[in-house]
Amino acid sequence: MNVFRLIGDLSHLLAILILLWKIWKTRSCSGISGKSQFLFALVFTTRYLDLFTNFISPYNTFMKIVYIVCSCVTVYFIYVKFKATYDSNHDTFRVEFLVVPVGGLAFLVNHDFTPLEILWTFSIYLESVAILPQLFMISKTGEAETITSHYLFALGAYRALYIVNWVYRYYFEGFFDLIAIVAGCVQTILYCDFFYLYITKVLQGKKLSLPA
């Protein structure tokens, strides 16, 4: 465990908690893509099935459980508890266009053709594109609440830190996982446009809005 990885994990946790807090505090999930949140819940549940087969560390087990529980609670908030505030008219990204190709790719390109390994690979590929419905929603409405942009920034920072973590691990441990690295880079690239807007607008105290 290196410092980039740790801060990356904490940034990821922060993102998840910011989102839960925003929904709970405002009693509203407006501006949040339920589809992205559903995909993240699917990512965690398919990736962390090794909770039942492999023990790595108390930290690892704890974080996995927290991620799964928080993502499921988020989905519950959006689709059940605060359903009336869910902006489904703007959340129109076709999820099957992500899940089906990603599922196919996981079957074709993986480390090992076993159920757990294919599900892990599926979750890695799916995570890399799971934010697309959220970004699509923002591009459709042309704006995002400031708290939502903080959420996205923390999530993007987590991805960027994981890349630094892989560079570190490659040099100092000789470790690399090509599937995770390629998918992670794709995922980080998707945030670049958002990072630019975040730095030029949100950090200057303005609301994140796109030019019409």
Binding site: D9, D50, I56, N60, M63, Y67, H111, T114, Y162, D177
Partner: peptide
């Protein structure tokens, strides 16, 4: 022959 390693990353 590639061995599937334990996934310590989240």
């Amino acid at each position: 022959d590639e061995e599937t390693q334990a996934k310590d990353e989240l």
